[in-house]
Design a protein around this nucleic acid. Structure first.
Lengths: 225, 225
DNA sequence: TTATAGTTCAAACGAACGTATGAATTATAA
DNA sequence: TTATAATTCATACGTTCGTTTGAACTATAA
């Protein structure tokens, strides 16, 4: 019996879905667009993935499993090297966001397409994908949060959590909007080809994130903290 | 003749559309949901706004006209006060992002609902809304960009533009995700009621943005700058 | 070869979509 | 009051949506 699943059709569907969900969003992409671009029969999605929602989850799982493992692995290594000392904030930020951004250079891991999909999905979470991402992300997030608490003992934990949010936002946006935002703002940034742009985006964003993370603590106007 | 338009039905539709587009996105919201929530007839949207796309544009125009005017007004005032000196970066950032965030406290200007809609729309720009936002935003963006160039003469202009992007991202995300992101990350941030949360979000985000804007310049690995 | 499980296919399902229509109703101005 | 414009309404149009079906086809194992 043919127990080995036909991976070709599955992969073609996942690739097409990833690109189309990135470009037009979940609701803006139809099954007919996906199967058309993948060059497979309309019924193939339901046969291989059950439903459109399950397909969306598979699109994410295919990439996030590796990303989360890698993030865990890098942080494990950093903490092992540091011994009982806390890991430097810059190393933690690079392990979390740098690992993500460097996926863009690896076409076999989705490249910029997946990163943009992730970026836009985090700001438009449908109920079903929100629950899925929460489950996929929780363990990694908690590990990094704890690492930042240890790395920045003088900063209140609530501030660290907020700044982690802000860093996520700046990163999602930087990825999702590498082209889109330029059209919104209509700004010519530089004469760089696209690979160069990604190469330079990482140090640029990293500087920004670290500056924000280590910024002077906020002063609350009336209510005492 | 009744030249005065019936503003009541129009406003009810705009309010419902604003909330639903925020919650479910443009493609995820149907005309029947909008008219149902607004308590008006299905045909009312097409009668008053022509089409769904035009309605979306009106939802934005209603809020952005005021926001852009206010941003211009505040920057005018800052530059007048500064004379021929450049305006401080912190004042520019507050004029741009603080003005936006303080809309959240004003329910008559859309409150948090519109801010979240704006935040999520900037990462999922359909062709038609992208073109619309580019047109609406261009003049204000250029003014602020020039102000930042003057305020930070020692920072390369390309870096300033990138960091403006990053600030936009952190802000959009902070707004769009005040609730959504918490569910993704599943973090309890603090025991704050919602008004208190907005009050404190402004100085928190402002500290982060300024830290990022004034961060150490990035070092590019191989290629010399 | 034959039996069986896996996969593809064309076609269709009912539901929901955005939009249009023309009659009914309401408001305004003469 | 009457004439006219503005607005609301129930209803329907043609399309597209996600999903299902059962037959056809393909690959595997006996």
């Amino acid at each position: 019996m043919a127990e080995v699943r036909n991976t070709d059709t599955r992969e073609r569907i996942l690739d097409a879905a990833e690109r189309l969900f990135m470009a037009h969003g979940y609701d803006g992409t139809s099954m007919r667009q996906i199967t058309g671009e993948a060059g497979v029969n309309l019924a193939a999605v339901n046969y291989h993935f059950g439903a459109k929602e399950t397909l969306m989850q598979e699109v994410f799982r295919r990439r996030l499993d590796w990303l989360n493992d890698e993030r865990m692995r890098v942080l494990d290594q950093l903490e092992a090297e540091a011994g009982d000392q806390p890991v430097k904030p810059s190393a933690i930020v690079d392990a979390f966001f740098g690992t993500l951004l460097r996926m863009a250079e690896d076409e076999t891991r989705g490249g910029v397409t997946f990163l943009r999909l992730l970026g836009r999905t985090l700001t438009e979470p449908s109920e079903f994908i929100r629950a899925f991402l929460a489950h996929e992300y929780k363990a990694v997030m908690d590990r990094y949060k704890e690492a930042l608490f240890r790395a920045l003992p003088e900063v209140p934990k609530a501030e660290i959590v907020w700044r982690f949010h802000f860093m996520l936002g700046a990163t999602s946006y930087a990825i999702a909007g590498t082209d889109a935002l330029r059209l919104v703002t209509d700004w010519q940034i530089e004469d760089e080809d696209s690979t160069d742009r990604i190469d330079r985006l990482v140090p640029r964003l990293m500087s920004f994130l670290l500056g924000g993370l280590r910024a002077q603590l906020p002063q609350f106007p009336d209510v005492p903290q």
